[in-house]
Amino acid sequence: MGILEVKDVNKRFGGLQALGNVNLSVAENTCHAIIGPNGAGKSTLLNCLVGKLIPDTGSVMFDGQSVLGRTPFEINQMGISRVFQTPEIFGDLTVMENMLIPCFAKRDGSFALHGIRSVFSETGLREQAEQMLEEVNMLDKRHMHAASMSRGDKRRLEMAMCLVQKPKLLLLDEPTAGMARADTNNTIDLLKEIKEKRNITIAIIEHDMHVVFSLAERITVLAQGTPLVEDTPENIKGHPKVKEAYLGEAA
């Protein structure tokens, strides 16, 4: 039984069957990649996991509880953190404030009315945030406006914001999309480090095969809304069905 169990999930948008009978099991403390050509339903699947979309049929269980019908903030409080395709951070706030918000969410839950005491009296949370920034080598940037940073830094900040919550499951939506090769390699190194240091399950959606094969322990290939195969990276590489899905019948 994996930490994340997706069973017979279907999702239609009008006449388009975006997901058809998707079954997926992500084992605890592994890195599971979901790959597939454009329009395979990867993002739809991810949105079903975080509460943005509700599947028409089927069930999504996380850590023994159903996530269906829950809002994104409730699902985050259950232990799923999400990294977006384009980094979603609080651009108007400083890097330090960006880090403190997930710390507050972790400690105080989805709503707490601390209207009088200063943010800077929260030394415990500040230390936690600084430690996390140190880990991603961004401590020197803590006073910067988040919006003024480079894309790579925004990505690292977003990742740090997710990790500081110590999630049980980290969902990555094409974390290296649009990145330069050097930045991509940095991200891979960062993710490898995260995997080694922490007990964390990672589910990653990715286009870049280089990233997938250097990180994932299991790979699910989606095509036209249905999983084609699920196997280890070694077996996926030479799989004829995968080649067919990516390159078409002729290949």
């Binding site: 409080q77 609080f90 651009g91 706030l93 918000i101 507050f104 601390h114 209207g115």
Partner: peptide
């Protein structure tokens, strides 16, 4: 206060706030 910081976060990126729990 932390409350004020959350309010500024709402103005900045409400989606991120929701996905931050």
């Amino acid at each position: 206060s932390p409350f004020g910081m959350m309010l500024r976060a709402i103005k900045s990126n409400q989606q991120r706030l929701n996905y931050t729990g």
